[in-house]
């Protein structure tokens, strides 16, 4: 059992958990992830580690509610426990002094981009960060990102905060302004990482993306997380999760991530209907509903 020391919403549907996991906290490096299972009947899902505190023996994860497991996870509070947390898994981000690095975080991906941005800054890079979100409410970790960046640009799809548009608009501007960019690191929705990679491919700027395919064990055993890199099959859990964005076959990733859509929808619907029943039956359950607002 892994105790949740602190749980707090960063934005609607996006929650940060500080989890007691001393072994993982001691070893975690930027870019790595954990796999967790909330309860006995639960599925295993990979979640990137946002930060860790080796002294306190805690790790931070940031979770956006999408399906049943993440929705359930986001209903957990300080003092609750998660049955299994295993990691740190995957290869750490390659941190070096590249010169100027643009770190792009899209949505909840910002939480995953943050530790990499921070490490790149410490390694002496000039870090230019671009954070994108659907709207103002969903912009997360703004002050944290600002603290580790030489410049921070923010875009919202609807223009409700900062500049209206997409992260790629900002990246294109930087390129057009003649900013010398040695590396781009992009973490976020697949469409975003693909758009960034397409843009930088033309400019011949090295680009690293962090992939989050379906995974079970996270140690290379199942092969479920295989992704097409340069026409060859690689395992995101042990060969990644970071890959050269110019070599990733994003279409295959989108296609494979859709493999269980029917089952996932069924799972979510049954979960929601059960929750509604229990909400009617118990006054406490309405608090769980409340977290969604």
């Amino acid at each position: 059992m892994f105790k949740i020391m602190h749980a707090q919403f960063l934005a609607p549907g996006i929650k940060r958990f500080v989890i007691e996991a001393p072994r993982i906290a001691r070893k975690q490096k930027p870019g790595q992830f954990v796999i967790l299972r909330i309860y006995e009947e639960g599925e295993r899902i990979p979640v990137t580690i946002e930060n860790s505190d080796p002294q306190k023996g805690t790790i931070n994860i940031v979770v956006q509610a999408a399906g049943k497991t993440t929705t359930l996870l986001n209903s957990l509070e300080t003092g609750d426990s998660i049955l299994d947390v295993v990691g740190p898994l995957g290869k750490p981000s390659e941190i070096a002094n590249y010169g100027t690095v643009v770190v792009v975080g899209g949505g909840v991906g910002t939480a995953m981009a943050y530790p990499t941005a921070s490490a790149l800054k410490r390694a002496g890079n000039r870090v230019l960060s671009i954070v994108g979100a659907r709207n103002k409410e969903l912009v997360i970790l703004e002050s944290e990102m600002r603290a580790v960046s030489d410049a921070l640009m923010i875009t919202t799809d609807d223009g409700s905060y900062a500049d209206k548009g997409f992260v790629t608009d900002k990246l294109r501007q930087l390129i057009q302004n003649g900013t010398r960019i040695d590396l781009v690191v992009a973490v976020g929705p697949i469409v975003m990482m693909k758009a960034v990679s397409e843009l930088t491919r033309k400019e011949n700027i090295r680009t690293v993306v962090s992939l989050n395919p379906i995974m079970i064990d996270g140690t290379g055993m199942c092969g479920g997380c295989r992704v097409m890199i340069d026409g060859k099959s690689e395992f995101a859990c042990v060969d990644g999760p970071e890959f050269d964005g110019h070599k990733v076959n994003f279409e295959v990733l989108v296609q494979r991530n859709a493999m269980y859509r029917t089952a996932e929808q069924r799972s979510m619907e049954e979960f929601k209907s059960k929750r509604e029943i229990s909400a009617q039956a118990s006054p406490h359950a309405c608090q769980a509903e409340g977290v969604q607002r």
């Binding site: 009947e41 639960g42 599925e43 295993r44 049943k68 497991t69 079970i216 064990d217 055993m221 199942c222 493999m259 269980y260 029917t262 089952a263 996932e264 069924r266 799972s267 049954e270």
Partner: peptide, 20 residues
């Protein structure tokens, strides 16, 4: 692994999905 470890054969009582 889906079937044995994660009990996908008991889906949806267990959350790990399996193709039907």
């Amino acid at each position: 692994t889906r079937i044995n470890l994660m009990k996908a054969y008991k889906f949806p009582a267990y959350d790990e999905p399996m193709l039907d």
